[in-house]
Design a protein around this nucleic acid. Structure first.
Lengths: 208, 208
DNA sequence: GAGTCCGGATGACATACGTCATAGCGTCAT
DNA sequence: ATGACGCTATGACGTATGTCATCCGGACTC
């Protein structure tokens, strides 16, 4: 189960877009002879199932996947298999995602914007026990501070995508006034001018 | 310049996410010995420049790229080099995108959700002069009909992402009432309940 | 030349939204 | 046990939004 001895690093690849998944697998096969993609998953649940079936050395996880997102997968895998190293590979440079990834036990956070050659390098480094995070992103995550929203505020904001306050109230079994109060608080905490802007800000920061 | 004779298909790859670009390049190198990725671009302008420098047989274009989007690139390339075959490779199954791609002269429209093996197959087919489009997507595009919005309505809707009517009016040098009128029309045409929903619908359909 | 369409504008109305004050209840820490 | 905080609620106020009727000028069609 340990990576260090055998020399070859066994990787589980989780990514919902099939073509990108196949392409990344090809990239690793072509450029990293010391790395084996031993399993590929298209959603979060499948990732968990495959990981439990044969625990790899490194799990390479996309965040936005169907059924179960990559950050939740990271959390569960880290709890079940503390020796398994986790690298998040995502499109989004959202400070909140990085924070959640690190507190979920991930060792690496890599952007799809990064050069292709960095992928294998990152996998090797986390397999050796190092951490891999872009310094500027880490800085931004620290500078931005924590999510100031309460659970309810976040929940309400998540539903504020065109619905009326009444509709949101119906879904959460709250009164319309309460919903308006939560939205007002969220708007102020995020420095937004209205619910739409507030939602966009929260989403950009990775707080939704 | 013609592909048919030499046997090897020369492909220009345009994709803004460097890692995905490298991965797709690796995928083709690994699985398609008859295909050469002769150039790689990270944005629309670079794509045009590289294509003019050495016209490939097939241009594989992502849609959402900086500086110039893939559909605009397709339009220009098709006008300048009618023999160049164009394949759009995108995340989005938006009927409006497909329509615009085909009317821009693209021969293929491929989703990143599709299996990795289909990429090389699609490139070979368009290089032979065939068209490659998923039947269900084409059906949806036809069923959905055309964009019902006028230019002004579309323009106003594009700015309706949290701004007040007044702010939109300022940017477009219109009166606030006029902006509200356009939004109202767009909302009705799209069957939405308000501007936010209208914007979401238009975006999903690829009309923005 | 009359009709039609689009861009642009105004005014009026009902509803939705954002804000504030206030209050009751539960939990958790000090 | 007191206070701080989060969740829920109500009422009231001003503003923003969505709708409708109506209007004008230009362009294009028949």
């Amino acid at each position: 189960m340990a990576a260090g001895q055998s020399g070859r690093i066994r990787v589980l690849l989780a990514e919902d877009q099939a073509m990108v998944r196949g392409a990344i697998s090809a990239l690793l096969r072509l450029t990293a002879p010391d790395i084996d993609v031993v399993a590929e998953a298209g959603d979060g649940e499948e990732t968990l199932a495959l990981a439990r079936q044969a625990v790899p050395d490194v799990a390479l996880l996309d965040i936005e996947m169907p059924r179960l997102d990559g950050l939740s997968v990271a959390e569960r895998l880290h709890a079940e298999f503390p020796l398994l190293r986790i690298v998040i590979l995502t499109t989004f440079a959202r400070p909140g995602y990085l924070r959640r990834a690190l507190s979920a036990g991930a060792s690496g956070y890599l952007l799809k914007d990064a050069p292709a050659v960095e992928l294998a390098a990152a996998i090797r480094r986390v397999a050796r026990g190092e951490r891999v995070v872009q310094p500027d992103l880490a800085f931004e995550a620290l500078a931005l501070g924590d999510d100031p929203l309460t659970d309810r505020e976040r929940e309400v904001l998540r539903l504020a995508d065109g619905r009326t306050a009444q509709a949101i109230a119906g879904e959460l079994h709250l009164s319309e006034g309460t919903v308006r109060n939560y939205l007002s608080e969220a708007i102020q905490k995020l420095g937004a001018a209205n619910r739409v802007e507030a939602r966009r800000i929260a989403e950009e920061r990775g707080w939704l």
